[in-house]
């Protein structure tokens, strides 16, 4: 089995002064750089798969400038000898499409069974590259998985992901496939020192952007034009209409324009009767009939 993990070096902004208000640029000096936490989960998952399936090859790929090698080495150190290759594509792009083109180009040549990437990168917050790569390679994908089981025979996987409200969806997906991993899939390990020493010595294969074979049409689809400090969006709130009379406006304000429920009477009686009322209410409003089994 061949597992490819895409890992990114990201800048993490932890201070409100990250954007220079006067120039509209972000200041890298005011950020810290690290392996994207979601990609870290992907690396960990690959290592865990290899711990169970011995016949397995792990290849780490990153796209970025020279500094990205440090990040790649950190990812390598997590797995040590379990990781077989490291590849860096020497290019940096803000456009997910360009990134995905480069990655898929390289991945296609290597071959794969499973591709793992983070659900999103904490810097641009795009969550697109994974899906782009899947589409470019024409393979199925599931995003934001929190559980990954490989069915030994039949090249199939069972995955789970969150649907909101704490619900999870279990899906079956055939291989080869791409999964973007979400928080909660696993708890990434901390590299041991021997593995770090090993990582320092490992060779990283470097591929130059120009060496990738692209069509002439394939270029960036978006462009970042400006950085600025966040401002909350004004949310709607109840406002009395200016055309109402002063008294009506005042009354609306003083009542808090609240959704007071009118007309319900206060029920009294024995505890049993009252309990019946409540249960009836629940039944009428279908809170009891719609139990899932």
């Amino acid at each position: 089995m061949k597992i490819i993990v895409c890992a990114k070096r990201v800048g993490h902004a932890y201070h409100s002064s990250t954007v220079d208000l006067s120039t509209g640029h972000i200041d890298p000096g005011k950020m810290v750089f690290m392996l994207n936490p979601y990609d870290e989960i992907a690396v960990e998952e690959a290592i865990r798969i290899k711990e169970h399936i011995s016949d397995c090859e792990i290849i780490l790929i990153t796209l970025g400038i020279f500094e990205a090698e440090e990040t790649l080495r950190y990812a390598f150190a997590m797995g040590g000898r379990r990781i077989n290759r490291m590849i860096r594509i020497n290019y940096e792009s803000f456009d997910p499409w360009e990134t995905a083109l480069a990655l898929s180009n390289v991945i296609k040549k290597i071959g794969f069974d499973i591709i793992l990437c983070g659900e999103k990168a904490i810097d641009d917050n795009c969550s697109q590259v994974g899906t782009f790569v899947a589409e470019l390679l024409n393979i199925p994908q599931v995003s934001g998985i929190v559980k990954l089981d490989i069915v030994p025979q039949g090249k199939k996987t069972l995955v789970e992901r969150y649907l909101g409200k704490g619900d999870r969806e279990e899906m079956e997906c055939c291989l080869p496939a791409l999964f973007t991993v979400g928080k909660g899939l696993n708890d990434p390990r901390y590299p041991s020192l021997p593995n770090r020493i090993l990582a320092e010595k490992m060779k990283i294969e470097e591929i130059d952007w120009i060496d990738l074979e692209f069509g002439s049409e394939e270029k960036a689809l978006t462009k970042v034009t400006k950085f600025f400090s966040p401002k909350p969006k004004t949310r709607k709130m109840f406002t009395p209409d200016s055309s109402l009379s002063a008294l009506e406006r005042l009354n609306l304000m003083m009542s808090g324009s609240s959704s007071k429920k009118e007309g319900s009477t206060v029920l009294e009686g024995s505890a049993n009767q009252l309990a019946d009322h409540l249960v009836k209410f629940l039944v009428q409003n279908k809170f009891l009939s719609k139990e899932d089994k």
Binding site: T234, R235, M237, F238, T239, P240, M253, M254, S255, G256, S258
Partner: peptide, 12 residues
């Protein structure tokens, strides 16, 4: 007796 934040809608 006025609601909390009864006047915020004006600034909004």
């Amino acid at each position: 007796s006025a609601p909390l934040g009864a006047w915020v809608h004006q600034s909004a």
